[in-house]
Amino acid sequence: MKHSIKRACYIMMGVAMIACNSYDFEQEQYKNEVYLLSNSNLIYDRQVAELKQEGDTIYLMAGLSGTLNADKPFKVALIEADSLFKAYNKSNYDIETDRYARLLPGECYTVPSLEGQILVGETQVKFPVYLHNLDKLSPDSIYFLNYKIDSSRTDAFNPKKDEVLLRIFKENDYSTTQRNVYYNYTSSYVTLLDKDNPLVRRPTNANQVFPLGSNSVRMLAGDEEFGEYKTALDRIIEKSIIVTMGEQTSKNPLARHLTIEPYRTIDVVQLTPFEIYDNTFLINVISTPDGRSTYYKEFRLHYKYRLNGSDPYKEVKAILRMEYSPRVELL
């Protein structure tokens, strides 16, 4: 009996020892593979370039997947491509070729290097893209850079994330192409300067403002409308003005002088300041007695315009206002 018990103990110990044999857990872990950061549509659209004279920098990101950090560096090499760009246009616009997105012109960017390395212990490498001359880009068009992984010069990579469309957005202090920016007409007048038909309108609608250069924006003149944006190119060309911000005024450091010019064909004449319509861009801080403040960006405009040379001018006295939060803009 004693021997039987001893034997059973030995057998159980033996089984226990076998059970402790090592198991290849690595086969259950995610592999280390290089990928290009993008959303589910293979577009990376989370960066906005600031419109500055000296240009701005955005980054193309290559990441390294895997459950564990790699124990060796990973080489990453990129090459320019156009397959994803073409697929984007075909799938989104098909035969509407005039609405096709555009590749960013060569004069607008510089990529110093298309080769990098994800170092041991790190999970990404950034490829800087230096952007300049962005004021030459139309705010109505979509611009991309298209890059893909060079398979011959890159270590293991994910073939489903080996190409990316880098969306180019631009912004200045007044607007951005990343989203639609509207300023609302407040206390505004549009008067037809025709003594036989002196029609006065009080616009209360919103005017979409597009960034052009570091200090300039485009907007529709007066109470004009461009209808459906998808088909509005001709109307935008016909009815838009450019507002360019200049120096701080001597009266109020929160105000800047501005000039009003035609965008293309419109006949527009900037008039002299009149009361609150003093041709300035103003950061208007409206404070309540309890100390809270509301912040507005305001275009205060006085100009006249006409779409046809034979028409009477329309005089515009307008305040275009957008509420904003200075703290959020600093983020």
Partner: peptide
């Protein structure tokens, strides 16, 4: 100048 001015 011939105009008032403000500051904060």
């Amino acid at each position: 100048t011939y105009a008032p001015r403000i500051a904060r």
